[in-house]
Design a protein around this nucleic acid. Structure first.
Lengths: 256, 256
DNA sequence: TCAAAAGTGTTCCTGTTACACCCATGT
DNA sequence: ACATGGGTGTAACAGGAACACTTTTGA
């Protein structure tokens, strides 16, 4: 094969710098800081919810940083595990958020000092950050957020009632919400939001909450059962009027 | 609203370090290097192709770095513009590749020195990199890659005949190929790969090349026209036997 | 007049939608 | 008995797939 069709400038990656300067001091220009933010999504009281943390007057996503010798996926998983103590969480990369002004403002100073944490505008954590956003689907009842040494609260917010949030975190949350709406159409992932055992009406209500529209019971049930992912168990004993629904769980084969 | 449900550990983001140590020297552990790689996709001779650069015995994706005061999208666009000299390219974020061993090997040394570029294992460009991959759809005839000062070749490779590539670049290319296959089903983006004026049979062949399967002419034409994105122009004068096809272009309203 | 290429129409089939019907359970 | 909720069936419809028919062009 003859593949040499011409030449292409290599000088571009050096951005006009002298080579020696580029290799020895390029990090002064080309080393933006990188973080991870997690959109942890749960389902409670018939609503989709998102775990947020409070600092001062506003809220933010749980997050962390990536070690130089650690894979991005490992870092994200580690942060999620530490935050929720879940054993086998569903975690998926969402997108990158890299506006040039993504940094915390001076508003942070008072909240840090109030919490007894030193604050300095020159600290690297106050620089501009590019962040890798992940989203996770969890069973709220299985999460066990820890009480830590700093006086910050957490709360599961409904997507319809999100609070004021720091930086661009609200747009990250909304993008995750939107991504979930898309993914649910092609992939069978919704069960991550429910407990191990669930009924079809419950799963139906969950899908309706995610898609924000009514779904026909009959067709929904047929579609779910046709996917072959769910295993029918004995009926659930209820205390309310009406027929007792079957319980289902995800087939064990899916995990082998 | 009563949203204080409990407390959640903040100590996690400090990863067990003393606070002062974390804020003043955290970058020693938490500042992985970040790059951008571009999968530039074109269409020629009835095949999907990808622009690659040669360094030594193997090939790699065009790429670059992000300035600390520059948005990720701007950086990616700038790199693409410099590489191809396109005016209004279609560029979309693909994914992040962040394995912990993503770095160039010592094999690079000889090729650098051969090209007269200094090489030092300690240079930041030889450290482990996390990369943000983008993919771009271009009209190969509109791209004008520059001849630069270093003796490296470029070539438009068919996806069926990819060469040996450095690092994980081949898997990035294949993920872009796969993403395109998915996106084409939902979005009308294929025309970016053709010239301004095209015929339906041409567009049909392109879709068949992307999806790697035969598509019915009749249904394809109806679907495309029903999308309302294309504007019918006078027929093309051909020199080959057979009826002359209409030409189409993307409706101007789409750009306003 | 024939083969090739392009435009359009027809029929069949599948999967979606909306709704109806029946069954089980508590009051 | 009746209201409520859950499981399943059915008729109507939309969109996809396969194929046929017609028109236009060069040889």
């Amino acid at each position: 094969m003859k593949f040499i069709c011409g030449k292409m400038s290599q000088s571009i990656i050096f951005a006009g710098m002298e080579l020696k300067e580029f290799f020895e001091h390029g990090t002064d220009y080309y080393l933006p800081h990188l973080s991870i933010d997690l959109v942890i999504i749960g389902y409670q009281d018939n609503r989709l919810k998102c775990l947020l943390l409070k600092i001062g007057e506003k809220w933010l996503l749980p997050g962390g940083y990536i070690q130089t010798d650690e894979s991005v996926d490992d870092a994200a998983t580690k942060i999620l595990m530490n935050r929720t103590h879940l054993e086998d969480p569903y975690l998926k990369f969402l997108s990158v958020f890299g506006d040039k002004d993504r940094q915390f403002s001076n508003e942070w100073k008072e909240y840090f000092e109030k919490a007894g944490i030193p604050w300095n505008e020159e600290y690297w954590t106050n620089k501009r950050f590019i962040t890798l956003a992940f989203y996770s689907l969890v069973d709220i009842n299985k999460t066990h957020p820890e009480v830590g040494e700093y006086d910050e609260a957490f709360f599961w917010f409904s997507f319809d009632e999100l609070p004021e949030m720091w930086m661009d975190h609200k747009s990250i949350v909304l993008e995750a919400r939107n991504r979930l709406k898309q993914d649910i159409k092609h992939e069978q992932i919704s069960y991550n939001l429910l407990s191990n055992y669930f009924t079809m009406p419950e799963l139906n209500q969950l899908h309706q909450a995610i898609l924000e529209k009514k779904l026909d019971r009959s067709r929904f049930q047929k579609k779910m059962l046709a996917s072959g992912m769910f295993e029918r168990l004995p009926k659930l004993q209820k205390e309310t009027p009406g027929r007792n629904p079957y319980q289902y769980r995800v087939k064990k084969e899916e995990f082998e």
